[in-house]
Simulated assay, not measured.
Amino acid sequence: MRKSWIVLTGQVLPVVAGFVLSGGLVWQASHSAFTATTSNTGNSVGAATLNLTNDSTGPLFAITNAVPGTTGSRCIQISSTSPVASAVKLYTAAGTAPANNISAYVGIRIERGSGGTYDSCTNFTPAAEVFDNTLANLITRTNYDNGIGPWALSGTTTTETMSFRVTWTFATNAPDTTQGGSTPTVTLTWEAQS
């Protein structure tokens, strides 16, 4: 009986040794003998910055006690310091319409040009009329896609400017029903996209 136990042990040991040796060969075969690498470092992307400012210190129009035929105008200068070319458009956002909304009787004329500032339109030189309709129509321009424009900015390291003159007129044919009426508060927004 002892002899058969020794024979069994003698058969198991070569099998175990064979597994160990074949595992070592497989490990050596899966590790290549040659390698080479090359690298390119420092890769990054920096986005340009679009920057628009204006010289206003208050609203372009905030009129009270207007009567039919009352008119006025004010200028605003838009400045860009963007290093890339872009296109500027003008659109609006309007507050809640009042019960007696007179926007349909307020004419708005917008001209683009040069010179003129928020403080004075004296040196304004018009280049083109870009809008001539009612305030009711203007406030339908609510985003860049349906905005007024575009006007090109070339994108330079110096400041580029464009001026706008906004003229408002309370219609001479405004009916008696407009008495005591008002318009929603309107925000004019100039947006540049490249």
Rank of each mutant, 00 (worst) to 15 (best):
M1G: 10
K3N: 13
S4I: 15
W5C: 11
I6G: 04
L8T: 08
L8D: 02
T9E: 04
G10R: 00
Q11G: 13
V12C: 04
P14N: 03
V15F: 09
G18H: 08
G18T: 10
V20K: 04
V20M: 10
G23P: 00
V26W: 10
V26G: 09
W27K: 14
Q28T: 10
A29D: 11
S30D: 05
S32K: 11
A33E: 13
T35R: 15
A36Y: 10
T37L: 07
S39I: 04
T41P: 07
G42D: 02
S44E: 00
V45E: 01
G46R: 15
A48D: 06
A48V: 02
A48G: 08
L50D: 02
L52F: 05
L52T: 07
D55S: 09
D55W: 07
D55L: 08
G58M: 07
P59Q: 13
L60V: 07
L60E: 06
F61E: 11
I63N: 12
T64A: 12
A66H: 04
V67S: 14
V67L: 12
V67Y: 08
V67C: 04
G69Q: 10
G69A: 11
G69E: 06
T70M: 14
T71C: 06
S73A: 14
C75N: 05
I76A: 02
Q77T: 14
I78K: 02
S80T: 14
S82V: 05
P83Y: 03
P83R: 13
A85L: 06
A85N: 11
S86C: 14
S86G: 15
V88R: 06
V88P: 01
T92K: 02
A93F: 01
A93M: 07
G95V: 09
A99S: 13
N100R: 14
I102N: 03
S103G: 06
S103Y: 03
S103W: 02
R109G: 08
I110W: 06
E111D: 14
R112K: 12
G116E: 04
G116D: 00
G116T: 00
T117V: 04
C121Q: 01
T122S: 15
T122A: 15
N123F: 13
N123G: 12
F124L: 06
F124R: 06
T125E: 09
T125I: 14
P126T: 08
A127D: 11
A128K: 14
D132I: 03
T134G: 05
L135K: 08
A136Y: 01
N137G: 06
L138V: 05
I139D: 01
I139E: 00
I139V: 12
T140E: 04
R141V: 03
R141S: 05
T142P: 03
T142V: 10
N143Y: 01
N143W: 00
Y144N: 10
Y144K: 05
I148P: 06
P150F: 04
W151T: 09
A152D: 07
T157E: 00
T158D: 07
T158N: 10
T158P: 10
E160G: 07
T161E: 01
T161C: 01
T161P: 00
M162K: 03
R165D: 11
V166I: 14
A171K: 10
A171V: 02
N173V: 12
A174G: 11
A174H: 11
P175R: 12
D176L: 15
T177I: 13
G180T: 12
G181I: 04
S182H: 09
P184C: 15
T185Y: 02
T187I: 15
L188G: 08
E191P: 04
E191C: 05
Q193Y: 03
Q193E: 05
